[in-house]
């Protein structure tokens, strides 16, 4: 399997605070990786470095054969390959669901008219929201908004998708509907890296789980690792999560 995302000894500081202290991991095509860890462990920052929402101080990040930290990086090409979904959805409130989805394909890939409409329909089918195509974001529940955000990202046909605590703002019922969409994507072969607090979901859906602690990859393994943690830190973390 080809490596899609590769972090090597990544260091990142915000001012004097070193958030990432030598993070390394690889993600292969079609793999689903869950990053877990307590708040402040650097997991969201690691994710945001992958599509250069944050710049790193040292180390290297390679995504689909591109060096992310390179000064001459084609940022827009990188972001066509990497989709990201945020905790706060960040839909565009002045646009309908369809317009939210087709804005980037229209502007970036020059997709037009009927083709753009079909693209929106396909993306919405994938997240089970075909009937909401003309709605505005404020008319949707949080779970529905998050599914539209996933559809918006899918419409750019990314090679890898990042999920940054996408269910943290949702109640358990709405969390379920979003997680089901993500599981379906995972089964469809999408390469996914997700920062999550849903331990059950990480165990079920992820091929690999990465536990981050104090800016480092502390422990890594399959979902089963969550049943038999090796380090006291992970043991402690899991005990508090449940």
């Amino acid at each position: 399997m080809s490596v899609v995302v590769k972090l090597e000894d990544v260091h990142k500081s915000f001012g004097l605070v070193e958030v990432l202290r030598g993070v390394s991991f690889e993600v292969s095509a079609g793999e689903v990786v869950a990053i877990i860890g307590r708040s402040g462990s650097g997991k969201s920052t690691a994710l945001r470095c992958i599509n250069r929402l944050e710049k790193i101080q040292s180390g290297s990040i390679e995504v689909c054969g591109r060096r992310v930290e390179a000064p001459d990086l084609d940022l827009r090409a990188l972001r066509q390959d990497v989709g990201i979904v945020f905790q706060s959805y960040n839909l565009f409130p002045h646009l309908t669901v369809e317009e939210n989805i087709v804005l980037a394909p229209r502007r970036v890939k020059n997709v037009k008219g009927a083709e753009a409409h079909a693209l929106a329909r396909t993306a919405l089918e994938q997240v089970g929201l075909s009937d909401k195509i003309d709605a505005y974001p404020e008319q949707l529940s949080g779970g529905q908004q998050q599914r539209v955000a996933i559809a918006r990202s899918l419409a750019m046909s990314p090679k890898v998708m990042l999920f940054d605590e996408v269910t943290s703002a949702l109640d358990p019922e709405l969390t379920g509907e979003v997680l089901r969409v993500m599981e379906k994507l995972a089964k469809g072969g999408m390469t996914m890296i997700m920062v999550t607090h849903e331990m059950g979901f990480a165990r079920r859906a992820a091929d690999r789980v990465i536990y981050m602690h104090t800016g480092k990859v502390w422990e890594t393994g399959t979902g089963a690792m969550l049943g038999s943690p090796q380090t006291p830190e992970l043991k402690n973390f899991l005990a508090n999560e449940l």
Binding site: V82, I84, L91, F92, L103, V108, S153
Partner: peptide, 8 residues
Amino acid sequence: EAAECLAL
């Protein structure tokens, strides 16, 4: 941020 992440 969301718009720029969509390569706009």
